[in-house]
Design a binder for these strands. Sequence first.
DNA 1: TATGAATGAGTTTTCATTCAT
DNA 2: GATGAATGAAAACTCATTCAT
Lengths: 195, 195, 195, 195
Amino acid sequence: MSKPREEKYHAILDAATEAFALYGYFTCQVSKIAKLAGVADGTIYLYFKNKEDILVSLFSDRMGKFIQEILHSVVQYQTTQEKLLCIIRTHFRYLQENRSLAIVTQIELRQSDPKIREAISGPLRDYFHLIEQVLAEGIEREEIVLADVKVGRQMFFGTLDAVISDWVSSKKPRPLEGIEDLVFDLMRGAFRIKE
Amino acid sequence: MSKPREEKYHAILDAATEAFALYGYFTCQVSKIAKLAGVADGTIYLYFKNKEDILVSLFSDRMGKFIQEILHSVVQYQTTQEKLLCIIRTHFRYLQENRSLAIVTQIELRQSDPKIREAISGPLRDYFHLIEQVLAEGIEREEIVLADVKVGRQMFFGTLDAVISDWVSSKKPRPLEGIEDLVFDLMRGAFRIKE
Amino acid sequence: MSKPREEKYHAILDAATEAFALYGYFTCQVSKIAKLAGVADGTIYLYFKNKEDILVSLFSDRMGKFIQEILHSVVQYQTTQEKLLCIIRTHFRYLQENRSLAIVTQIELRQSDPKIREAISGPLRDYFHLIEQVLAEGIEREEIVLADVKVGRQMFFGTLDAVISDWVSSKKPRPLEGIEDLVFDLMRGAFRIKE
Amino acid sequence: MSKPREEKYHAILDAATEAFALYGYFTCQVSKIAKLAGVADGTIYLYFKNKEDILVSLFSDRMGKFIQEILHSVVQYQTTQEKLLCIIRTHFRYLQENRSLAIVTQIELRQSDPKIREAISGPLRDYFHLIEQVLAEGIEREEIVLADVKVGRQMFFGTLDAVISDWVSSKKPRPLEGIEDLVFDLMRGAFRIKE
DNA sequence: TATGAATGAGTTTTCATTCAT
DNA sequence: GATGAATGAAAACTCATTCAT
């Protein structure tokens, strides 16, 4: 892929993120994405197979980067406690810096259309896997107490997700920085992490 | 509202719940709901203003009953510990018995369309409020330790939601009964509930 | 199929015949057929699966009737000579009375699109078969002399087709009645029919 | 026209013949022709005004050569009998050697689009004219008996055309050489040519 | 000349909604 | 009230043609 080609590809993906966040996938016409990206409608189809492909690409590209960033940050820490805190912080920071992506994630993560779900579920599963790994390791090292890794992950991710959900739907959201420690404190209790 | 009128109203709502769960709101045609309800397409419009109104009614009706049931159950308990466990159990049991509603909730709870969001958010806010009340009361009575009621609710609801989300998307879900205690144990830790 | 339903079905088919004759299949928009038939665009799709289905139905319906009429007429005659003359006359008369059908036949009979070809070829093959049967019978009864039935049919049909082709493309065509005898005289010579 | 320019012109025309034969004029995209010709899409428009112009040029060029070849061959013969046989043979041989052209001719000869028809009709009319001339001369010289030259031409051309039509649509066509004599024998009867 | 990325007009088809019966 | 045939607005997508390089 040449430089200008890649640039336009990402311009369209950026525009789609904005547009999907604003209108939702189904309510958003391809022409709106095109206008936002500053290209003609037909140009979209030089870069994406169809509308669905835009959404799918958006997820694998953006979510991929999100997971990548979290993975990259987590490996710098040793203890389970640090790792969990790191995930919380990176999760919040990344989505705070990419509000439209956060919205799209919130909205479209739950599409029922089987084809879309399937395409989306990939990166998310990776994330779930990472969390579960950290928890399993924590149990093994006896740094945390947890009866069921899957339920542990559900609580951990569900909490972050609920926080983001509120933040996203709030008109004037308070910065997520202030919440990190509150969330972490709950996790410390839930996972019986010693002081 | 006369008896037979009310019957048909609920028949359509039941059909819509099934159909939305199966296809998703946007992908589901009104004619599919009509067929499932055993009425003509036009009949739908004698009971609902438009397609959106079906979704909105579905939420206020079904979610309303859901909240009602939880409220009703919770008041039978005294301690915060018991109340939280009661919510967990009722939440899981109700959605387990109404799988289609659970799916619709998961999927459509996060519509971006502002009109739909607004309509949906009512019953949900009631639920959030209930949880927060229980938590606030628990703090006051010193039965739990919690720095921020809102974050506490986000964790509590987010966890239940994530469990349901996994359960809903699993082809062969394990019964939710086995998970209740695991979830509650995590909450006990998070909220520092004494044994 | 109820009465009014069948009426509209044929109204659309009539309109399509006119429109395809006027513009050609590809150049003719579905909306033009709808306007000509006096129905809304969407109504077309209550009666036909898609644009292609209109063309296919047109052929099986119209060509079917055409063949039917020829078959019906031919059985009334005994000698090969009479039968061939009957085919010539019926062929000319039918298409003269259905000029648009004649045009559509001329134009679309030769579509390259495999799906369309296949659908169209059915009724035509029936016609070819009929002609070949008459010729084979004539040979057997020694009423005509002909080395190869297929080539005989090609000449017979090709001649009629070429006449119609000229007639169709002429702005002010001379009536086909005057040509029947000329054509038949050529056939008589070609097939060595005795006086 | 310089040499290399002319080469590319014909390369495009060759490619168009193949592509139109394969897909049909309307179903064939200009980009397919370009790819087949080994040039860029835009290059096509340095040699042809538009898509239609390719088809038109194809006919005047290819059909022109076709007529030329027939004309050239026919003048070598004296008697009407010989001339007609020569036309049959050349017609069959030329199209057998240019199957794609034969297909395109069969398919597109009958376009309804008036502009296309007009452009195509030129070379065809020349051909018709040639046949009619041979026939008129035959009548004059009393080598054939024929009441109407136009109908005679219609039969003559229609027969050749029908043979080609069958040959073109057959997956495994028998060689046309075997048919020449069969066809000629029919013509001899039709035109009352003496032995 | 040659390229091929970009354009945007144009077309088929769907489907929520209406309304005559 | 109930029906379901008819409507027509709306939207995804295609592709002939252009033009900056």
